[in-house]
C-alpha cells in the first residue's frame, strides 16, 4: 500500500467535505447535481482513492503479488 490503513481512512473522511462542497461549487457554473449523482460521484472518488492507495507504487501489480507469495 502507498499509505497506511489509518491514513487511508483519514483521506476518505477528509474527502467527504470536499464532495459535499463540490456540489455547491458546481452550481456556480450552472451544473446542478442531484443527491444520487453526488453520491455516485463521491463513491467514485472514494473508489479511486482506495485503488490508488492499494496499487503498488511501481504499477507492476502482478510482480508485486508474485513476489509477495
Amino acid at each position: 500500500m502507498r499509505i497506511s490503513k489509518g491514513a487511508l481512512l483519514v483521506v476518505i473522511a477528509v474527502l467527504i467535505p470536499f464532495v459535499v462542497e463540490f456540489r455547491t461549487a458546481l452550481s456556480w457554473f450552472g451544473i446542478e447535481l442531484s443527491v444520487l449523482e453526488s453520491l455516485v460521484l463521491g463513491g467514485a472518488a472514494i473508489l479511486a482513492v482506495v485503488l490508488w492507495a492499494v496499487w503498488p507504487p511501481n504499477g507492476n501489480a502482478e510482480a508485486e503479488l508474485s513476489g509477495s507469495r
Partner: peptide
Amino acid sequence: KALPWRDPVFTGMAL
C-alpha cells in the same frame, strides 16, 4: 504520509 494517522489521539486532534 509519515504522520501517525493510526493513532486516534493524533488523528482526532489533527482533524
